[in-house]
């Protein structure tokens, strides 16, 4: 697994400028094209600032989008018959190690994106937080990144065509962005099923931290559990896909 990570690190090292731009631009774009325009139309109760409130959406969406894209990209290389990744499958490294390597790398990249997003939104003064709050927020967001990386890996392994992958990713992100209360408050009239979503509950918890309310870790534990299930599904699929 270390060698898989080492390979990803080498690729990253050669593209460091690109990643620095990506880490900086993603939260800025989300702020400029989603949070900022929405702030003119969405008014929150109790005088809470929308820009402050939507910072959570920025952190979650930026970090999970990046880790999703990276894990999907890593997985899709394994099903490309003429790729280096494919030939790596003839080495004694197990499928589990290939999977873990890809997922850990996408988690690392998503985590760095989260740090960048936090730094950028805090510099915009759209969120005022103490260090402990930030740590707690990170603890709540990491399980979301893990789950979405796993889903990205699954899509990367299952969809052969690039266009199909793009369409599925687009639908998936529209769903995640707007069904989890990341940018639009869903308190009134939200179908009951959405309130059961662990991502929605985690986002609610983070927003509670922002409002100095109490939060519950159970939703994050559920996310970790679901992530483990997805990892097992990925592992089962990999046995079929890696040898097809």
């Amino acid at each position: 697994m270390n060698i898989i990570l080492q390979r990803e690190y080498l690729i990253f090292k050669h593209n460091i400028i690109f990643y620095l731009c990506l880490w900086t631009l993603i939260p800025m774009i989300i702020y400029l094209f989603i949070s900022f325009p929405f702030s003119f139309y969405i008014k929150l109760p109790n005088g809470i600032s929308y820009l402050n409130w939507s910072s959570v959406g920025n952190w979650v969406s930026a970090s999970s989008t990046l880790s999703f894209i990276i894990s999907m990209n890593i997985a899709s290389k394994y099903i490309d018959e003429n790729s280096y990744s494919r030939t790596m499958l003839c080495t004694p490294i197990s499928n589990k190690e290939h999977l873990l390597g890809g997922l850990i790398w996408s988690l690392i990249m998503g985590f760095i994106q989260l740090i960048f997003s936090l730094a950028i939104t805090l510099s915009f003064k759209s969120a005022n937080l103490f260090l402990l709050d930030i740590l707690l927020i990170i603890i709540y967001i990491i399980p979301i990144i893990i789950l979405i990386s796993n889903i990205g890996f699954l899509i990367g392994l299952s969809c052969k065509g690039g266009l199909i992958r793009i369409i599925i990713s687009l639908i998936f992100f529209l769903f995640i962005y707007f069904s989890s209360g990341l940018f639009v408050p869903l308190n009134n009239g939200l179908p009951y099923i959405f309130t059961l979503s662990p991502i929605y509950l985690s986002v609610q918890n983070i927003q509670a931290i922002m409002a100095n309310d109490s939060s519950m870790i159970s939703s994050s534990l559920i996310l970790v559990f679901i992530s483990i299930l997805f990892f097992i599904i990925n592992l089962v699929i990999s046995f079929k896909v890696f040898k097809s």
Binding site: R7, L10, I11, H14, N15, E81, N82, S83, Y84, R86, T87
Partner: peptide, 9 residues
Amino acid sequence: QHIDLDNEM
């Protein structure tokens, strides 16, 4: 048979 080297390394 085909060339499969990683162009990013």
